[in-house]
Design a protein around this nucleic acid. Structure first.
Length: 587
RNA sequence: GCCCCCGUAGCUCAGAUGGAUAGAGCGGAGGUUUCCUAAACCUUAGGCCGCGUGUUCGAAUCACGCCGGGGGUACCA
């Protein structure tokens, strides 16, 4: 819905720039900027390194695209022959395909990556454009299950990628520590609470109370009523209720902290719903002043029937506020505090209407920055085709998933690499990484069915697959034993498989931009798997034919191949890091 | 009822702005370790891209209509 934030400033390599300049000189209809924007990478690398589609010219010139392409390629032949960067141009179908000078291209790409190290792919395009991301935002007193993973991991990955692209970032955990659910907890505690159980296993116990409440409420409808009363009591400042609330909140936050540290996720702010308790009244006043709020069925609402939308609820019959009220206050607070360029809410798609209402009401309040707010939604995590539901107690706990993944990795290490030092730590990194990657690899809008076999599969396309390759490449560079130099003879990089790796490496920066623009970390996952797959094929060739080994006998060949391997390793490392995964050097 | 999302190989998914012959993995069949880590690699079979109509030089991709699945739709978040 909202336009992309980062300007799609194509990484202007001298190669692409040359293609654009030469083509524009030949095609009267197009400027070099236009050509640069149109350039594609051929799906089959055999065809070339850049492709210019000529289809748009067909109508104006009243000629078939292949004829136009042939004509353009013909006119370009002489220019390309004299080019410092390009070595060939050819028409194929409706495309003009360009081939770059392989050695210069490799030198440019590999040299750049190795020179920049962990800063490769970094840019300053986002300078001064603060991105605030609201993510994870669990409800207190609920066990962290795999359904909570998506918001947490997508948000964390986006924060890192935006940061890498130069944006100042603010990660906000909008903890669900306010609302009627707390009334439920207070009632449950009142009815069945046992202090010693709360002491020993706080969150587990609170969660048990929460589930029991919903179970019993089915038979006793009065419980829901009592819960609403209890929340109102809390909201009006009842000291007893306050004290309990504080206690529940503290132990939940401690538990979440443990999980976040395992996942390597950090936040700049834990300002949750309760934080806005005293910031709602000014918003309600402003709504009233502008004549936006009305009373209907004894509740305070913003009427949106002109859009055929249900109203946004501000206050219930019993005067208690709702999350919409708090979200209004939160958005305004965040704009005042951070002056954001974009405010992204990484929240499930079930809340789409809520966010549409929220942004609309902000607009009607006169905040033109409402258009900079965006709901970054994602699909459901299901288990055995059922929704995970905290209320029903039908959940797969994250702890269980992580533990099983780590155990399994550990047993694989025992089998393959038993004397690995630091084995427990590596098993942890790889196991957690497997879970993270499995969750992030699917495009976020899709529903996913949680499947043990899939999460615990460490084969091609998995997180461990990428990590394994990183470790393997690291070993090759170590075994080489000499410093990796970028002053090598790139002419010796002759194989198409090696060219393909270089091509993919060159795409890294652009790939990160797309991840940010589309708010889609899964694109980074597929990129890393593709790169890994290509480089594995390349590395494996040496098994049969020693002359194809990375550490070839010819020192000049070995030097350039090692440089390529080192650059690939570097990109894998940065990519894994941005996903929040860690990249062990051995496994 | 209305609104939103999804539908691609047996399974899980890519296909990003409409573009070159729709691609991977898992699973199936077959193969590769004197070697830099076999958590790897190579070969192979397997497709009315849910259905229909339209727009276009060109549609898995866009529009409209169906079908199937999921979600939302006033006092939960």
């Amino acid at each position: 819905m909202a336009p992309p934030t980062t300007t799609p400033a194509r990484s202007q390599s001298p190669f692409a720039a040359e293609v654009a300049t030469l083509s524009a000189a030949v095609v009267a209809e197009w400027s070099s900027e236009a050509v640069a924007a149109m350039l594609e990478i051929p799906s089959d690398p055999e065809r070339g390194d850049y492709a210019l589609p000529c289809f748009p010219l067909a109508r104006e010139r009243r000629l078939a695209p292949p004829k136009i392409a042939a004509e353009i390629a013909d006119q370009l032949k002489a220019k390309v022959a004299g080019s410092e960067w390009l070595e060939g141009v050819e028409a194929a179908g409706g495309y003009v395909n360009f081939r770059v000078k392989g050695a210069r291209f490799a030198q440019y790409v590999v040299g750049d990556i190795l020179a920049r190290g962990d800063d490769c792919g970094r840019s300053d395009a986002g300078t001064g454009q603060t991105i605030v991301i609201d993510y994870s935002s669990p409800n207190i007193a609920k066990m962290f299950h795999v359904g909570h993973l998506r918001s947490t991991l997508v948000g964390a990955a986006l924060i890192r990628v935006f940061g890498h692209l130069g944006h100042p970032t603010v990660g906000v955990n909008h903890i669900g520590d306010w609302g009627t659910q707390f009334g439920k907890l207070l009632v449950a505690w009142d009815l069945w609470g046992e202090s010693d159980r709360l002491e020993s296993h706080p969150v587990e116990y609170l969660y048990e109370l929460y589930v029991r409440f919903h179970k019993e409420a089915k038979a006793r409808p009065d419980l829901e009523e009592r819960a609403r009363d209890a929340f109102r009591l809390l909201e009006t400042g009842d000291p007893e209720a306050r004290k309990l609330w504080q206690r529940f909140r503290d132990c939940s936050l401690e538990e979440f902290g443990r999980i976040y540290s395992t996942l390597g996720v950090e936040f700049d702010s834990f300002a949750g719903e309760s934080f806005y308790e005293d910031k709602m009244q000014p918003v309600l006043d402003r709504l009233a002043q502008r004549g936006l709020s009305t009373t209907s069925r004894d509740a305070l609402i913003v009427d949106l029937s002109d859009l055929d939308w249900p109203p946004m609820m501000l206050r219930k019959q019993d005067e208690a506020t709702l999350y919409a009220t708090r979200d209004l206050a939160a958005a305004i607070y965040r704009h005042e505090t951070y002056g954001f360029h974009k405010l992204l809410y990484v929240v499930g798609q079930a809340q789409e209407l809520h966010f549409n209402q929220l942004f609309e009401v902000l607009r009607r309040l006169g905040y033109d920055w409402a258009d900079d707010c965006e709901h970054v939604m994602f699909g459901w995590v299901k288990f055995k085709d059922q929704h995970l539901s905290s209320r029903e107690g039908n959940v797969v706990l994250l702890d269980e998933v992580l533990n099983r993944a780590v155990e399994m990795v550990d047993s694989i290490i025992a089998e393959k690499n038993a004397d690995l030092e630091d084995r427990a730590r590596v098993a942890r990194t790889v196991g957690v990484g497997a879970v993270i990657f499995a969750d992030l690899a699917t495009r976020r809008i899709r529903d996913v069915n949680f499947d043990w076999d899939e999460v615990l599969s460490f084969d091609h396309g998995s997180g461990p697959y990428v990590m394994y390759t990183h470790a393997r490449l690291t070993r090759i560079v170590q075994k080489y034993g000499r410093p990796v130099s970028t002053a090598v003879d790139y002419e010796r990089l002759t194989d198409p498989a090696e060219r393909a790796v270089v091509q993919q490496l060159e795409q890294f920066g652009r790939q990160l931009q797309t991840v940010a623009e589309r708010r889609e970390p899964s694109y980074l996952c597929s990129y890393l798997v593709d790169l890994t797959s290509t480089v594995n094929g390349d590395v494996q060739r040496g098994a049969k034919d020693p002359s194809l080994r990375i550490l070839a006998d010819d020192p000049d060949v070995a030097a350039v191949r090692v440089a390529l391997v080192a650059a690939t390793r570097q990109v894998l490392k940065v990519g894994l890091d941005l996903l929040g995964m860690g990249a062990p050097e051995r496994m």
